[in-house]
Simulated assay, not measured.
Amino acid sequence: MKFTQWLRAGAALAVCCTGWMAQAQILIGQTVGITGSAAATVAESMGGAALYIDSVNAKGGVGGQKIEIVSLDDKFDPKLTLENTRTLIEQKGVIGMFMTRGTPHTQGIVPVLEQHGVALVGPSTGAMVLHEPVSKYIFNVRATYQREVEKAITHLNTLGIKRIGVVHVDDTFGADGLAGALNGFKANSLEALFIEKFDRAKPDYTAIAPRVAGKQPQAVIFIGTGAAVVDGIKALRSAGVTGQIVTLSNNASGGFVKALGDSARGVVVTQVFPSERSLNYGFIKEAMDLARAKGVGDLTPAMVEGFVSAKVLVEGIRRAGPKPDRARLHAALEGLKKYDVGGLELSYSATDHTGLDFSDLSIIGSDGRFKR
């Protein structure tokens, strides 16, 4: 082969390799209810995450590699969550997991994460069991459900509302929220007016709603997810319950409000991030600008959660070095100190994977927006 032919061959090889490097991807796994009772909120949180990850990829990704989120639909079924996690880790070869949804769902995959040394960033659940004791491979971003419920009860008490009951889903999420409610009642020298629970797979309010109405509550703390809470709130209103209804941040989505329809106005939804319209926070403005550039409408709280969780994930990948793998990503996340996401600061250590501690309340207005 002549020298010029070698040059051409080398140039062709360089082009080939450059093209491969440009397409090289950092694979991150996600199993979440793309369909099922939590689908509306899931779609918004995934959309918020995509705003940030797409912007990073548009600039070349991290170290010349683009981030790909491989998402599998678990239909909000814990059994499918476990199956999907095994598929993503053992077959797809993801180096990390991202934004699972649901308390029993996330609890169920912890042994798989530990088996393979895979970090999970930003589970969309505030279950205390994922915070204390510290789970080595769970890196929480949002505050706990218990903090949300306690704050809600304290707020209601300051308004003179003391006849407060609890309706909760009968699973580990519901039990966790109930524990927060009981702490809130104790801290405010109150007792629960009633405690009712419903089946997660087949919620039925035909007996619960009349019993709740008979107690004439001033407020009801409703702990559940998506469609189950929508149906429950409608059932309570139809039974004659006129008191304030409070639900948690896992329902802070435009889809939840839309599904509630005429029953939405006045429902209080706890929040774990600042208002999606607050320009006092840099990450809110950043998300707004990216959404506007993509032609996306108003941000929602669920989109904000996805956006911030994505920022934490990407920062971990950046700090994992030029060849991120499972061990390097875990070490980078655990070494994350005083990371400013844009107005809120987050730190992790070997003894603390809590993340942020922000908590607030909002109320759904007549225009369907969350108002602070």
Rank of each mutant, 00 (worst) to 15 (best):
A192T: 04
A310P: 08
G47W: 00
L120Q: 09
Y137R: 13
T125M: 05
G368V: 08
P133S: 10
Q271H: 09
E68V: 06
N157E: 10
N250L: 12
K338H: 11
Q216C: 00
L51T: 07
L236N: 04
G33L: 01
G165N: 02
R372E: 12
E90T: 09
V70K: 10
V56Y: 07
A207N: 15
L113F: 14
Q216F: 00
T85V: 08
E276R: 10
K197E: 07
H105W: 01
A152L: 09
T85S: 13
A332L: 06
A310T: 06
I89H: 07
E305A: 07
Y348Q: 06
A43V: 03
G261F: 02
V70T: 03
V314E: 06
G96I: 00
H353Y: 02
E68T: 11
G63R: 13
D204L: 09
S249K: 05
V269E: 12
R319F: 08
H353C: 03
P78G: 11
L159P: 01
Y137G: 07
A264G: 11
V169E: 15
D352K: 13
F139H: 05
L336M: 15
R318D: 14
F370W: 04
G255S: 07
T247S: 15
G93K: 01
G335K: 05
I109M: 07
I69H: 05
A259G: 01
V149N: 12
V229D: 10
D231F: 01
G19I: 01
S189G: 07
G365N: 11
G47D: 03
I317G: 05
G295V: 00
E83S: 15
F194T: 11
G93R: 00
A350N: 10
G122I: 00
A50S: 13
E83C: 02
E345M: 07
G297S: 13
S71L: 00
E68R: 08
I164W: 05
N140D: 09
V141H: 04
S349L: 07
K66Q: 14
G63T: 11
M99Y: 03
A39E: 14
E132C: 06
K151Y: 13
G335D: 10
L156H: 09
Y339D: 14
V56H: 08
Y281P: 08
T247I: 05
P104D: 14
L27H: 11
E191I: 01
R265V: 12
Q216R: 12
L344I: 02
P203L: 10
V296G: 09
V166P: 09
G316T: 06
L190V: 04
L190N: 05
L182W: 06
V94E: 00
M128P: 03
G117T: 10
T154E: 10
A11Y: 06
A187W: 01
L80G: 03
A181R: 13
S362W: 00
K66S: 13
M46T: 09
R369I: 01
V149G: 11
G160Q: 05
Q115Y: 00
G165A: 02
L193H: 03
H353I: 03
L260N: 05
V272N: 15
L13F: 05
Q30S: 12
A227I: 10
A9E: 13
E148P: 11
R369D: 04
